[in-house]
Design a protein around this nucleic acid. Structure first.
Lengths: 164, 164
DNA sequence: TCGTTATAGTTACAAATGAAACCATATGCA
DNA sequence: TGCATATGGTTTCATTTGTAACTATAACGA
């Protein structure tokens, strides 16, 4: 724990930020802590990165997406998706076909092995989420939902690059 | 916008995650979007990275910290702090002395130039925060505060590595 | 006082990430 | 048709980041 220390005297005239009350900073810490905790559950054990897991998660929900569609749904950029996919295909967790009638597009889906892994990791992720939400009571959970919805609305334009 | 597409039929038996309702994922997107928006304000203009800005922010509030104390207060690891500091010292924004009585420790503070930059960037950051909070009404803001406090409490152990 | 262990900070190397250039196929339009 | 432009996806290269090893100083105990 940081030793207590008085703010510098210069403080008054310079109005420095108080990071511990600064929303963007707090969100960042919180988000990274949670995402990291989840990732720790599978990173070493399955040799699976966060981006790879996200790709698998969307492919579990939507069969036959193209790489671009995966990118949209994961808010990752296409290069990151391409890299994740080549590792996943390599590892036999995802299979990649070519779209009939548009040879540029890939048609992606989980393999048997991919599904098996998914079915182990998804419950762990959900368990972690429950653990976090358990810190809130029912009323707070409802407000959180609502607040996230509203905060997210303002972000129409850009929503790229992230972890979990 | 992603084309609508029905979830794969396999869905029912495999219970895939719905990322768009998955708290860790939503937090991650939100946090990154906000942090990135702030960073865009100063990255190019001042040639200042997010980590560098965070270091400057704590040094603005607490004169004379050591590198380790900066690391604690920014939730960054010591290597990241070390790198940020060498750039900042190089650029003449931070000065680094040696602690009397412990030659290992550095004693850090903003230079004149550092203060000048701080006094330009801090208001921009605050303005962005206000912009985000403006999407919520007063009641929601109070709940958000309270919810963040409670969520953060569970995170005693680990709180490292992040952005903004 | 010496030897062991801990701490502050930096350096070196590997892995992850981002930006731009790049191929291949498709589309639009003269 | 045929050329210009757009799109899906991969590759390349530079930068960033994480991890481990390292140096220097300090603290502790015999």
């Amino acid at each position: 724990m940081p030793a207590k220390r008085k703010p510098a005297p210069a403080t008054a005239e310079h109005a420095p930020l108080q990071l511990e009350h600064f929303l963007p900073y707090r969100l960042s810490i919180l988000s990274n802590t949670i995402s990291q905790a989840i990732a720790d559950d599978y990173q070493r054990r399955y040799d699976l990165s966060m981006t790879e897991w996200r790709v698998m998660a969307v492919l579990a929900r939507f069969e036959g997406l193209s790489a671009r569609e995966v990118a949209e749904r994961t808010a990752m950029d296409k290069v990151a998706v391409s890299r994740a996919l080549s590792r996943l295909v390599e590892a036999g967790r995802v299979n990649r076909d070519i779209h009939d009638g548009d040879k540029r597009r890939s048609v992606l889906g989980l393999t048997e092995a991919g599904w098996a892994m998914h079915d182990e990791v998804a419950p762990m992720a959900r368990a972690r989420e429950r653990e976090v939400l358990a810190r809130l009571n029912a009323e707070e959970q409802i407000w959180l939902e609502r607040i996230l919805d509203k905060l997210q609305m303002g972000n129409g334009e850009r929503g790229t690059g992230n972890k979990s």
